[in-house]
Design a protein around this nucleic acid. Sequence first.
DNA 1: CGCCAGGTTGATTTCGCTCAAGCAATGTGG
DNA 2: CCACATTGCTTGAGCGAAATCAACCTGGCG
Lengths: 211, 211
Amino acid sequence: MLDEAKLALSCSPGQVLFVEGDPCRGIYCIQSGVVALRKAGHGETNSVVALRHSGDTLGYRAFAADSPYRNSAEATTECQLCYVDRSVLKGILEANPAVANHFLCLAASETDQLETLVVTCRSLPVRARLANVLLVLKDRYASADEEGNLRFELPLSRGVLASLIGARPESLSRAINALGQDGVAQFRGREVLVSDLDDLLDEIEGVSPGG
Amino acid sequence: MLDEAKLALSCSPGQVLFVEGDPCRGIYCIQSGVVALRKAGHGETNSVVALRHSGDTLGYRAFAADSPYRNSAEATTECQLCYVDRSVLKGILEANPAVANHFLCLAASETDQLETLVVTCRSLPVRARLANVLLVLKDRYASADEEGNLRFELPLSRGVLASLIGARPESLSRAINALGQDGVAQFRGREVLVSDLDDLLDEIEGVSPGG
DNA sequence: CGCCAGGTTGATTTCGCTCAAGCAATGTGG
DNA sequence: CCACATTGCTTGAGCGAAATCAACCTGGCG
């Protein structure tokens, strides 16, 4: 049923899947690539509130609440997606209540991520937030090279990364320098080299109030 | 069924209902009073990430995901609650799938609130965040007095309020002074007087980048 | 009466933002 | 194929909002 209904589509970096406030036409599943979820702040501000990766589902929240999209989705890399229309999904849900439960679990973990985002944003300086995001992205986008270093291939532009950690691009740039100078992480373009994972952890734990 | 299973309980300000990391024994519904949800940051840090009010349900997220509580719940006022045990709730959910859907909607709106929190925290200064929280609390905790002023009775201590808007108590105190001096809002203890609602809106819209 | 927690005030510091310029990579038109 | 514009990123200087540190006030309570 799902196989018949789904619609494959691909999009390129920068492309916008849907915009905050749009009526929810359906949901998207990411086959490959990365999507940034943005939300408008006051005025012109527009902030990345989360990343979605291969295997994730987009827009189910708006679908479930029968509301417009609550944030905008923008591909940060080449993406392969599949789209399931609202009407089709409704049928699927009725036929299979377990899916609703799955959505509930997704929502729970999403909420969790956001709470964590709030708390890290409040309790850590930019530099430590940068270290933190590396730790978060480690499992998906880093692997050990020949010399045992951790080698990242970040699926993000500087601008998106900055917004994700809640900083200006300039501040991010300086934080990158700082981590580089202290030998914690070497950035070159979207590549990052970390020789000791513990250094990243120390960045986070070693902040003034206790540890 | 629910009526038989639920367990009434009351608690006083400062009392902790459950702690982050505790296994989820059941869920709580707030009959009256206010509960602050806290989450640990790095080190000693402990930040309020949301308020829950009369009518809200606590802990359903941990229940649904079958995980430990993801944040701590602390009463900020006298509270009347009712408690539904995990095992009982399971039965209720099986008998009544619509409840799961209700939970899903709750989770969706909770996520929404958190995204908003992130974005306001990033795009507004303390003073504007304070104005903003008043707007949010307006419907529940303010009413018009004889002279047409908006009169708040905040259900929060200064400390909790500060943490909620992501600021130190000292900074909150100064922001309160500032709003008072500019005639936007008069704070006296937990009472707040706002003569013109638009002034609060201006605090938020009137921030530098455009508006 | 002294103690203590919560709140306010003041002085100082600092982190990150703003503004502005420079630079490298990419793309476009002549 | 090269001058030029454009875009994304980095660097520097200066500023400002909020954190920190520390003292002090106030009200509640033993």
